[in-house]
């Protein structure tokens, strides 16, 4: 064969179809914006109707979005939505919720302890580990440079 790894890489690049980034970005903007808008609406409902302080209302709004995502994931609709939306559903808190719920659901056939429970962190584990680790570093930094 006349190709080696380097020359073949060029062939592969030439023949591999590119992702439709522009189209994906438009959808990501619309869906991502809509989800954030929904978050703002939920927040305002709690602030205006129940007198919840802004900080708490913001947390409640995230929890509600997580609950909606969990439900849509269970119904099998979330993956259909995110096929169009791409980062529009992955970047908001909905992406994190889906990453927790989807392995939990998928592995239920292997049992609740070693299936669901041990796989629920499969994709969210990295997020929590590095998130917590970064927050610890930030905490220490804030102690050092007051």
């Amino acid at each position: 064969m006349k190709y080696d790894k380097n020359s073949y890489k060029q062939v592969v690049n030439e023949y591999t179809p590119k992702n439709k980034m522009l189209r994906n970005c438009v959808y990501a903007f619309i869906f991502g914006g809509a989800i954030c808008l929904l978050g703002e609406v939920i927040k305002n409902i709690f602030m205006n109707n129940f007198g919840t302080p802004e900080q708490d209302a913001s947390t409640i709004s995230s929890v509600v979005l997580i609950a909606i995502t969990a439900l849509l994931t269970g119904l099998g609709w979330f993956d259909k939505l995110s096929k169009i939306a791409g980062a529009g559903t992955a970047v908001p808190i909905t992406g994190f919720a889906n990453a927790v719920v989807s392995p939990a659901l998928e592995f239920k056939r292997e049992g609740f302890i070693l299936g669901t429970a041990s796989n629920i962190f499969k994709l969210a584990g990295p997020v929590l580990l590095f998130g917590y680790f970064a927050s610890f570093i930030v905490g220490i930094l804030s102690l050092m440079f007051k």
């Binding site: 947390t59 995230s62 929890v63 997580i66 609950a67 969990a70 439900l71 994931t73 269970g74 808190i93 994190f96 919720a97 927790v100 719920v101 939990a104 659901l105 239920k108 609740f112 669901t116 429970a117 629920i120 969210a124 929590l128």
Partner: peptide, 14 residues
Amino acid sequence: PGVAAALIFGYIVS
């Protein structure tokens, strides 16, 4: 709250 919500709703959904 967010993490607990994701875990608990995830379990209920499963």
